[in-house]
C-alpha cells in the first residue's frame, strides 16, 4: 500500500473513532444523556474501550487470513484509541462518580472485585501505551513482543470487570468474552503452524 493511501486510511479510522466521543459530548452539552448521565458515559466509554481492544487483537488474525500485511500499520492506532477511551472512562469514574474520594476509591479497589478488575485492566494498559513508540520498540527489541502479549491479560481483566458489573443480563459481556476467547484460541492454534511471510 502506498504511504499516501495508508495515511488516508489512518485519518479515516481516526475520524470514525472520534464519532462516539463527539456524539456523547454533544448529547452531554444538550443534557440529552438521560436520567443518569454519569452512568451512561461510563457504560459508553467502557464499551468503546473494549471494542477498540477487540479490533486491536483482530488485526493479526485478519492480516494472516486475508494476506494483508499493511493492516499491522493500523494496530498501534487502534490500541491507543482503546487506551484513550479507557482514560476517559477512568477519569469520569474518579471525578464525577467518586468525586476524588481517595478513601472510597481505595476501599472499592480492595473490596469490590468489579472495581479491582477494572483497575487491573487499566493498570496493565498504561505500560503498553507508554511503550508504543517506535523508539521503545527499537530499545526493547524482543522484550517488546513479550510485554505487549500482556494485552490478552488486559482483555481478560476488562471482560471480567464488565461481567461483574451487570446485575443479571450478561449478554453484552458474553459477546466480548466470546470474541476474545476466539482470538486467543486462534493464537494458540496458530502457534503450532510454521510462520509464513505474512505471519
Amino acid at each position: 500500500m502506498k504511504p499516501d493511501t495508508l495515511a488516508f486510511v489512518k485519518k479515516l479510522l481516526l475520524c470514525n473513532a472520534a464519532v462516539p466521543a463527539v456524539l456523547i459530548g454533544a448529547d452531554a452539552a444538550r443534557g440529552n444523556l438521560g436520567a443518569n448521565p454519569v452512568e451512561f458515559i461510563l457504560r459508553a466509554t467502557g464499551t468503546m474501550a473494549l471494542l477498540f481492544l477487540a479490533l486491536t487483537l483482530t488485526i493479526t488474525p485478519a492480516r494472516q487470513l486475508l494476506g494483508a500485511p499493511w493492516l499491522t500499520k493500523l494496530r498501534r492506532m487502534l490500541g491507543l484509541l482503546s487506551f484513550a477511551y479507557a482514560c476517559v472512562h477512568v477519569s469520569i469514574y474518579l471525578s464525577l462518580d467518586q468525586s476524588f474520594d481517595v478513601v472510597a476509591i481505595a476501599g472499592d479497589a480492595v473490596t469490590r472485585p468489579f472495581v479491582t478488575f477494572g483497575m487491573l485492566a487499566f493498570g496493565f494498559m498504561v505500560p503498553l501505551a507508554w511503550t508504543s513508540t517506535n523508539a521503545a520498540i527499537r530499545r526493547l527489541g524482543k522484550r517488546w513482543t513479550q510485554i505487549h502479549a500482556r494485552v490478552y491479560l488486559v482483555a481478560v481483566f476488562a471482560v471480567v470487570h464488565f461481567w461483574l458489573e451487570v446485575k443479571a443480563d450478561t449478554t453484552k459481556p458474553a459477546i466480548f468474552a466470546s470474541v476474545f476467547a476466539l482470538l486467543l484460541f486462534y493464537r494458540f492454534v496458530r502457534r503450532g503452524i510454521p510462520k509464513t511471510a505474512g505471519g
Binding site: C15, V19, P20, L23, N32, A35, F40
Partner: peptide, 17 residues
C-alpha cells in the same frame, strides 16, 4: 459516508435515551 454510518451504528447500539 463512513462517519455517517458510524454515527448510525452508535445511535443504534449504544442508543442514547
Amino acid at each position: 459516508g463512513s462517519v455517517v454510518a458510524t454515527a448510525g451504528l452508535y445511535n443504534g447500539l449504544l442508543a442514547p435515551p
